[in-house]
Design a binder for these strands. Structure first.
Length: 388
RNA sequence: GCAAGGGUGGUCGAGUGGUUAAUGGCACCGGGCUGUAAACCCGGCAGACGGAAGUCUUACAUAGGUUCAAAUCCUAUCCCUUGCA
């Protein structure tokens, strides 16, 4: 039987690896950064830009948000998220598991699933592994995430163990339901593709907070169930940065070598490089678009805040070394003026640049791995980023 | 010229004898943002000293006055708005 996705390593340097991920919709070079498009849009950035200049091969969508608005039925009726949004490259949908964490005040959790009070209008909604899989089949993404519970970063041992055990049971339920839905052809994104099954793929999620033994335990349980790819969840959710790096160093190399490893929700450019160094292949993060919207720009010499008065007369681009169309044309002074006057274009342009910077950084990461010079690249990169 | 109403910190605007260095909004300055409840949130915003609790100085058009105490009451002056000439 053909696989829903194909992934193989093309180069390796230490634990860092380069690979090609083929989905039914696009070929993706890893390590890859996936822009976040929670509500069926990468905030402030047109698909044209993502496709042409930025050349993003895969973006995210979110089960919870799209379920509330515009609703599953509507998206299913309009042929799935690809058709509805016109994004024809790959999609990965998050399961709503992160909202179990981020909407903690609006939800009640038990073994069956999670009752949410909608953050939009307060309506009670019930999300479970089965419901999440139904929604994700209707959305039709290439990569579907299991429904997990994401405990806070500083969760204690007992709480983390209970959580991870439930996540493992939910993972099994997710997989069973997922398979059933695939058999019933409920996937709206189905596409006949040579050498691929045309089906959706399903990724498992490893939890365990900052507890290494629990991480190992979660890894074993997840691999035992068996998935097309494996994600590290529950990092950058309030724990110390050192804890995150410790977990990555410990966990990533132990994860299956023949499947993509996805670090969920991370992170800063430095985090990405560090994680690649430990063997991670896929990333997503709201940071480039959220910070971009609020005046934060990432550059090859560290972060800057375009609101700062020191940029008022600065005729230089955000980043002199950046080839993106924003840096080719606009000055910091102009961008600051746009931000200060509340012009939406400021958010649009900085988000665009930030995505360009993240995607470009991953391009350089891949290049360095292929040349066997990733260690050197990492050292230089981290030094430059902390220069500012 | 007469009549009425006003002049408050960068700005708009509360406050009409006592925890008022003076509520708010905006502007300004700075910080934060990691599987997006986020075009958002937090802090600062008279000056000087101090790490800080704090201390001192100067402040509600200007100049006097009343009072234990004034942005708040009184007098004069200047200026603004509206109406009538």
């Amino acid at each position: 039987m053909n696989k829903p996705i194909e992934w193989h390593v093309t180069a390796q340097d230490g634990e860092a690896r380069c690979g090609i991920l083929q989905t039914r919709r696009s070929e993706i070079e890893t390590p890859v950064f996936m822009p976040v498009g929670t509500q069926g849009t990468v905030k402030g950035v047109r698909f044209e830009w993502l496709e042409d200049e930025l050349d993003a091969r895969i973006i995210l969508g979110n089960t919870y948000h799209l379920w509330l608005r515009p609703g599953v039925e509507l998206i299913r009726d309009l042929g799935g998220l690809h058709k509805f949004s016109t994004w024809n490259r790959s999609l990965l949908t998050d399961s709503g598991g992160f909202q179990v964490f981020s909407l903690t005040d609006l939800r009640k959790l038990n073994e069956d699933g999670v009752e949410f009070r909608s953050h939009v209008d307060g309506t009670k909604m019930f999300l479970s592994p089965e419901v999440s899989m139904e929604i994700q089949a209707a959305l039709g993404a290439e990569i579907v995430m299991v429904f997990d519970e994401c405990p806070p970063g500083d969760a204690g041992l007992d709480m983390t163990r209970k959580s991870l055990e439930m996540t493992a049971r939910w993972a099994k339920r997710s997989k069973d339901k997922f398979n059933q839905l695939q058999d019933e052809e409920k996937d709206t994104g189905f596409l006949e593709v040579e050498n691929l099954s045309g089906r959706q793929s399903l990724f498992g999620i490893i939890q365990g907070a900052g507890h290494l033994d629990l991480r190992r335990e979660s890894l074993e349980k997840t691999v035992e169930i068996g998935f097309d790819g494996y994600a590290i969840g529950g990092l950058s959710v309030g724990e110390e940065k050192a804890v995150m790096y410790e977990v990555l160093e410990f966990l990533a190399p132990q994860m299956p070598k023949d499947a993509p490893r996805y670090l969920m929700g991370v992170g800063t450019p430095e985090d990405l490089v560090e994680a690649v160094y430990h063997g991670v292949d896929m990333f997503d993060c709201v940071m480039p678009t959220r910070n971009g919207r609020t005046g934060g720009a990432f550059t090859s010499r560290g972060k800057i805040n375009i609101r700062n008065a020191k940029f008022a007369k600065d005729g230089e681009p955000l980043d002199n070394d950046c080839p993106c169309s924003v840096c080719q044309r606009y000055s910091r002074a102009y961008l600051r003026h746009l931000y200060q006057t509340g012009e939406m274009l400021a958010s649009v342009l900085i988000s665009h640049h930030n995505l360009a910077f993240f995607l470009d950084t991953m391009r350089k990461v891949r290049e360095a791995i292929k040349l066997g010079k990733f260690g050197e690249f990492r050292r230089d990169f981290l030094r430059r980023m902390s220069n500012n």
